[in-house]
Design a protein around this nucleic acid. Sequence first.
DNA 1: CAATTTAGTTGATTTTGTCAACTATTTTAT
DNA 2: ATAAAATAGTTGACAAAATCAACTAAATTG
Lengths: 322, 322
Amino acid sequence: MLQETITAKEPIISQEAALIAGIRKFNRYYTSQLGLLQQHIFDSEYSLTDVRVLYEVQFNGKTTATGIREALGIDPGYLSRILRKFEKQGLVIKHPLPEDGRSSHLTLTARGEKLMRTMNELSDNQIRQMLENLAPEEQTKTGEAMRQLRYLLKAPGGAPRLEDVEIRHDLRPGDLGNIVRLHGEVYAKEYGYNIEFEQYVMETIGEFMKAYDPAKDRVWLASCFGEIIGMIAIIHRPDRQGQLRWFLLRPDFRGIGLGRALMDKAMEFCRQQQFKEVYLLTTNQQGTAASIYTKHGFMKTASVPETLWGQDLYEERYVRKM
Amino acid sequence: MLQETITAKEPIISQEAALIAGIRKFNRYYTSQLGLLQQHIFDSEYSLTDVRVLYEVQFNGKTTATGIREALGIDPGYLSRILRKFEKQGLVIKHPLPEDGRSSHLTLTARGEKLMRTMNELSDNQIRQMLENLAPEEQTKTGEAMRQLRYLLKAPGGAPRLEDVEIRHDLRPGDLGNIVRLHGEVYAKEYGYNIEFEQYVMETIGEFMKAYDPAKDRVWLASCFGEIIGMIAIIHRPDRQGQLRWFLLRPDFRGIGLGRALMDKAMEFCRQQQFKEVYLLTTNQQGTAASIYTKHGFMKTASVPETLWGQDLYEERYVRKM
DNA sequence: CAATTTAGTTGATTTTGTCAACTATTTTAT
DNA sequence: ATAAAATAGTTGACAAAATCAACTAAATTG
């Protein structure tokens, strides 16, 4: 047994208290920090509630008053008056519903859209001002921390977006470590692999690097706000074969088309290299990965029982003709 | 040359936009999520402003009205009335200042303290409710992300504090990768070492792990907000010798006593292990490290010229008798 | 098809926050 | 030393934001 455990598994009461106290501190700090409590946003004539209503109209396309009321939890009478004000100011239009004579769909007018754009610009400037005191690393860390929080707290739209992900294929300092780390963390979490697995990945990466030839091998790294969150690699093998390796996505970045994007890049590279075929080795435990492989034209050609990293599993081989 | 460069070094505009959009989303989400906008906190008779005032009285010990006014940015007249209400309700006491007949120090009464305790409990429950849908590790990640945000935004560019650093000596998934990464990034930045160095570190860590014996070897990792930012290790060697390895701090965490803290832990472990002596290998390039070694009783015993990682340098050996 | 529910409106009112004028001190400038 | 200016806080008048309850009109239910 390689691993040495020190810390307790059970959450300790005082730790929970510390966590909660920390969150409370954060809440208090963050509310004051961003001036979220100001009544009048950016010295405009609109209150925070006004802006929230406009935002709902803009993004919850074709909402009714009730939709907004439910989303924001405000008094119907109050909302009614706010909407009438907006209508009078030419920011919002009510489109009576043919199927329900009581309700109307709400949309922004061009003027309303313009107002919201201005608001967003002002908000962006405020954020930019906040960011400009930070070093570039700190900026990306801030972004990643917020993104992660939104994700953790299950915010709507908190899931990462493909547009925020950057894919590159050079190797920079820290990348090797990040590759190892990503594997260690993801496989430990998903399959309970112990640290021997991480060690194993380290060895395979080491071997790969010794023979690495930028013209024939390629590693793609996907990063979001500076953090490596996925990867794929192609290695040249004898007889115009290629091997696909280290295809991995952090769980919270799955299901957004990133796996496909990486696989596409890899396959395109294989075509450029004029490989006859590409193979990969995996285990039967990686169920979801398998379906991605078959979707991209790979076929299972072998399955051998093995005991690895404290697990009984089948080592599988997939091949795709190019 | 192993490295292949593709992407520009300059931060890309669209990524900044994504970052800002992400932050705006976070702001919007977080304000609504936590009900920070509700007027009446926890169905009490107190408004958000009321509670903020009480909080200031409680924690900015012995504030005056002006102190609160400056902290919260509210109208003096409004505050005056709020305070009078609190006085009448027996929550706050005004202690006229002998040195200034215009002002008074404000303190909470026992009743005021009790009210704040209740408020805090309600707030804790709300947070607990938010947390209970999360897995334990998600909870800790949430706490860490918030702590980091508070830290990043509060003290932009400020030096990290030793209190925020946690030192542990178990090995968790991702740690091996983090160790490699830390070395790769720091040495690239400070001495321009190329990725071969990171590869070399990977190999040495791999070798170490093969022979790793928790009873005789130890790796300490220093982390701040969940990120590994420093480390040190002791490996057992024949003849009751110990070798000190991988002593490294991220540059921005130097000069806060962390190096000393790590070294102390390492030396204490060496005493426990009853080593006769401890040695370490370094190069003449690591000038600042050398001074730390001598400060902790190490003496240079050898210096051999070498060419490593694209650099001409002297490999040096330091020894300390225990 | 009467009774009930739902969507939204309106009037009355309260709560919350703002502005300006004011008093009583303390500090500053001459 | 003393007049002028600044500071700390109060008060009155008022405006804005939000709530509550009673209401209308349309849709749904039994």
